[in-house]
């Protein structure tokens, strides 16, 4: 038994490095998506102290809207643009109807409000687009579907073109977001607001503008993850679950840290895959991916409550 835990998995890894690479690659693909979603959470949390429970349903809603609009006859890329417009309207509406009236209320009230948004979007999505599963318009968007077979170490490594595209797009989006946050006036304002609300107000940063902006960014992220995940698993309300995978990422990475979200997302993606293949399936009967991330996050919380990369609390003595 001990041998199965401590020795066999590593022997397997060394003996079949090509398979290990395959596992790592697949972990990485999930990882970038977790990182992306976690970024959406972090931006909203930093600028408004709201843990956005609705992030998951926004993924579903964006994917449904895209598929639905395409089904109504819009060309694929026009449908993407229209979905982005819908996500923008959603951001403005949420700021107007939900956030603005609740300014200054306790955090838990705002959290409850995002649960309200979740339920509302579920209802709205089902009413407009119906509740049945749909197929993501992968081909119409020009996302390649084939695969590339490499043979490292004389073995076999299969890279789905879909996965490659997902990784490239996600990395580009994360890079663009980081550049936006660090080098633009609006990005600086978002980070400033996360540091000190009063001071941000005093220099004339408008909370409303920033809130609409971060919710819109969350909407864009929702659309990208919705397309990526929808292409593998189909578009249904079950997609919501993948956003909750971002919660352990946040616990691991820290709720406020942008780097934490990225590194945490990649770590969880890769670790849960490795654990599933080398320990989960042989020893625990598989399907450990559903809970592994949460257990890992709990362990981290025991030792570092602010998360691995929680923004360092600057304290001068």
């Amino acid at each position: 038994m001990l041998r199965d835990i401590f020795i066999t998995p590593f022997v397997d890894m060394v003996e079949a490095p090509d398979f290990l690479m395959q596992v790592l690659w697949e972990g990485l693909v999930s990882g970038v998506l977790y990182a992306l979603i976690a970024l959406g959470f972090v931006l909203i949390f930093r600028s408004s102290r709201i843990l956005n429970f609705a992030q998951g349903i926004m993924v579903v809603f964006a994917a449904l809207t895209l598929v639905g609009l395409h089904a109504m006859g819009l060309p694929a890329w026009i449908a993407v643009a229209a979905t982005l417009a819908v996500m923008f309207v959603l951001a403005v509406t949420i700021e107007r109807v939900v956030l603005r009236p609740l300014v200054g209320q306790p955090d838990i009230i705002l959290f409850m409000a995002t649960i309200g948004i979740t339920l509302f979007l579920i209802g709205l999505g089902e009413t407009i687009f119906g509740g049945e599963n749909k197929v993501m318009i992968t081909g119409e968007l020009g996302i390649p579907t084939g695969d590339t077979v490499l043979e490292p170490f004389g073995g076999l490594l299969i890279l789905q073109h879909l996965d490659i595209t997902v990784v490239l797009v996600a990395v580009a989006l994360v890079g663009a977001l980081l550049a936006f946050l660090n080098y633009t006036r609006m990005g600086r304002a978002i980070r400033a607001l996360g540091d000190d609300h009063q001071a941000a107000l005093s220099v004339g940063i408008s909370l409303q503008t920033i809130w609409v902006l971060v919710w819109f960014i969350a909407g864009i992220i929702a659309l990208v993850t919705g397309i990526a995940w929808g292409a593998r698993a189909g578009v249904s309300f079950a997609l919501e679950v993948i956003a909750y995978k971002a919660l352990p990422v946040l616990m691991l990475g820290g709720l406020e840290s942008i780097t934490g979200a990225i590194v945490g997302g990649l770590m969880i993606g890769v670790l849960e895959k490795i654990f599933e293949i080398y320990w989960g399936q042989p020893l625990l009967g598989g399907n450990t991916e559903a809970w592994f991330a949460f257990v890992l996050a709990l362990i981290v919380l025991l030792f570092r409550p602010q998360g691995l990369f929680g923004e360092r609390i600057i304290e001068r003595v």
Binding site: A192, D195, A199, A200
Partner: peptide, 10 residues
Amino acid sequence: MEGRHCFQHL
């Protein structure tokens, strides 16, 4: 503002 209120992480 009183107490400076700089953006600490910027």
